[in-house]
Amino acid sequence: MLFQRLASKVSVLAPAKINLFLELLGKRPDGFHELETVMVAVSLFDHLEVTPTQQHDIVLDCEWDSGQLAQATRLGDCSQLLGDLPPQDSNLVYRAVKLLQSEENVPLGARIVLQKRIPSASGFGGASSDAAAALLAASEAWNLNLSIQRLSELAAQLGSDIPFFLYSGQLGSGQAIATGRGEKIETFSGRRIDLVLIRPAGGVSTAEAYRRCRLPEVPDSSEEIVACLKSHQRMSMPRQLTNRLTIPAREISPQIDQLATICEQLDVVAHQMSGSGSGYFAICRNRAHALRVAAQLRAQSVGMVFPVSTCGLQSLRN
């Protein structure tokens, strides 16, 4: 995350993420899956502002960025390409700030303005990133000075992916191995990657993808992909990346199946679905290559296309 404290409010850019590796290790007693995933933050951002108020109420104003709306409108059905915006009471941003207010006994309230650019239900982590940004921004706006560890404890109560985003941008490398349900974070420093995100029309039910998925007898290891990220050999990563949810997602969504076929024919380093979909990504050799690949994909009308790069501390320096 990239944040700035202004005179009367705190402003945060909340990044998207991709899963470069996602393996399921087994079913847990709590009903969730034990997993191992490699996540990296990328430069597609939602923008969130928190202004403290003397009233105790939390008020959230959430809307799509006008540019994203215009792009989705040109391409077809906005709801199919951008997803839905949850109402205030069920929005993770609102729930995160209410949790922080309750847990820390904060007498103040807040007005939150969230401008969305990351498509919902895409596997790009927009809602989780927004929740992490809200926890950080509210902590700063209310002068709580909470540690990342404390914010991570609160984040884990809300969703498995949320703690990761507290280690991105100005706050960390933005690259991590996550285990457990995804809440146990081990960060590492990796080199910059340029890539293209694709959000096809329609989403995938995460619950259905997990229900259809078969656990492997011998799980894949993330060691090779992590080694590539840490080294100058990151362009030698395997072309077919592991995501155990891809097969069931391709069964559910013909759009994902089509994207996989198209990306296989492109001159890219590697490609894969992110999370449980429906978002997809293609890794490119450099920024110029990513722009060319993005143009090729737009010409095939595959959905919303975003050329991006990784955005952790190491990436910001390179």
Rank of each mutant, 00 (worst) to 15 (best):
H56R: 11
L114R: 08
S102I: 08
A110T: 01
D84T: 15
S102L: 12
V40H: 07
L99Q: 08
V42M: 02
L75Q: 13
L44Q: 05
R117D: 14
D77G: 12
K98Y: 08
L108N: 08
G83W: 07
V40D: 04
T53P: 04
W64E: 13
L48G: 04
Q55V: 04
P52V: 02
L75E: 14
L114I: 07
H56Q: 12
E63R: 15
F45H: 11
I118R: 02
Q55R: 12
W64V: 15
P87G: 09
C78E: 15
T51C: 05
L69I: 11
N91Q: 10
D77W: 12
V40W: 07
S102Y: 11
P86T: 09
D84Y: 12
L114V: 06
V50G: 00
P86L: 02
Q115P: 06
T51M: 02
L82H: 09
Q68T: 05
D84G: 13
V59E: 04
L48Y: 00
R111M: 11
T53Y: 01
D89T: 14
S43V: 00
Y94I: 07
P86F: 09
A41M: 01
G67Q: 11
R95P: 01
N105A: 11
L85Q: 05
R117W: 13
Q88K: 12
H47D: 07
G83R: 05
L100S: 02
Q54D: 12
L114Y: 02
G109D: 04
L81D: 08
V113P: 02
K116M: 14
P119L: 10
N91T: 10
D61M: 07
P119H: 02
S66E: 14
H47L: 09
Q71A: 15
R117G: 10
R95C: 01
D46F: 01
G109T: 00
E103G: 00
A110V: 02
D65F: 13
V38P: 03
C78A: 15
T73R: 15
L69C: 13
K116Q: 05
L92G: 06
M39V: 02
C62F: 10
Q71T: 13
V93H: 05
S90M: 13
A72V: 07
V93N: 10
A96L: 08
T73Y: 08
R74F: 03
P86G: 09
R111T: 14
D84Q: 15
R74T: 11
Q88M: 14
Q55M: 04
V113N: 12
R117F: 11
S79Q: 15
N91W: 08
Q71P: 08
D46S: 04
